[in-house]
Simulated scan of single mutants.
Amino acid sequence: MSFKQGMKSTFRSEGADCAATIYYPDNKAERTPAILMIHGWGGIQLVLFKDFIRRFNEAGYAVMTFDYPGWGASSGLPRNRINPWERVRVSDSALTHLKSQNEIDENRIVVWGTSFGGGHAIDLAAEHPEIAGVIAHVPMLNGMAAVAAVPFLRMLRFSLDITLDLINPFKRRYIPVVSPEGEYSTMDRDGAGRLEDWVNEELEGKYDNRVTAASLLTMAPYQPGRNLHRIQVPGLIVGALRDTVAPFNEASVRSKVGSNISISTIDANHFDPYLQPWFEDNVTNQLAFLKQVIG
């Protein structure tokens, strides 16, 4: 099945022109409900999103994706740097951009974030009680837990690259974002190597698989789970029980959320829920939530 072309635009945030794309459903209404999709750690607009976009469009929802400054089709230097607090601000600007579109019903927008971006979706929802809802998909809610899951020898090698990156910021030190298990990257666990196959098949290999080493320093202090209790809108959190990239502590999450937040768990690792056979039940559950909150 061919993938439909979206409407491209840009918005300004953090000193960069950020690339955005809106995919409208074939049967769009005069004012269409919409989903803002927020990417994870090393994600760019379509990586692992295509199947979700198709299904959301088929259900009648517009979908907007975007690239963070320095990533994908967006401007900004240095390239492929990560700062989660900056990314939350960029996501806020993306939400404003989506609301400004004439075809979009600004009262029926759901913020959807995945992995590292799942934490950004939580942060955004805590600040925007006017949105219709939030979905946090295999979210990274506790940066310290994510760092603690990294093997010791890998952490030592990360430390060397981080030091070299900080010593000479004019010649950035990069680490691969993903790799097959056992190879050096920020994510080689939970079948992360499958992402390379997906990029080659779906994006014709057009992905810059690297991140600045110093970006890893932002992981541990980033704690979006602390904002769970502040969310007033309806929410759905999808957690993977065998996730070692963004470990999901179901009991801890349940203790922090109110009755407006539903929790759905999948017996899977971090990357499984994006792919079949896990994807089908996963997206069906999300579509049921979307129907409930935006029709």
Rank of each mutant, 00 (worst) to 15 (best):
S93E: 05
A94W: 08
S100K: 10
R108I: 00
S93G: 08
F116L: 15
A121P: 05
V111N: 06
E103Y: 06
H120C: 11
K99W: 06
D105S: 05
K99V: 02
F116K: 14
D123A: 14
Q101E: 05
L95Y: 04
W112G: 05
I109Q: 00
S100E: 09
V110T: 04
E106T: 07
A121D: 12
F116W: 13
S115W: 12
G113P: 09
N107T: 12
I104Q: 04
L98C: 08
G118F: 07
H120M: 10
G113M: 12
W112S: 02
G117R: 14
I122F: 03
F116P: 12
E106M: 09
D123E: 13
S115C: 13
L98N: 07
E106N: 13
T114G: 14
F116Q: 15
R108V: 04
D123W: 13
H120D: 15
E103T: 09
T114P: 09
G117I: 06
N107Y: 01
N102S: 14
H120I: 15
E106S: 15
S93H: 13
I122T: 07
S115G: 12
H97K: 00
H97M: 00
T96D: 02
W112H: 08
N102I: 10
S100D: 09
H97E: 03
T96H: 01
A121T: 07
A121Q: 05
H120A: 09
F116A: 15
I109H: 01
I104N: 03
S100L: 02
G118P: 11
I109K: 00
I104S: 02
T114Q: 11
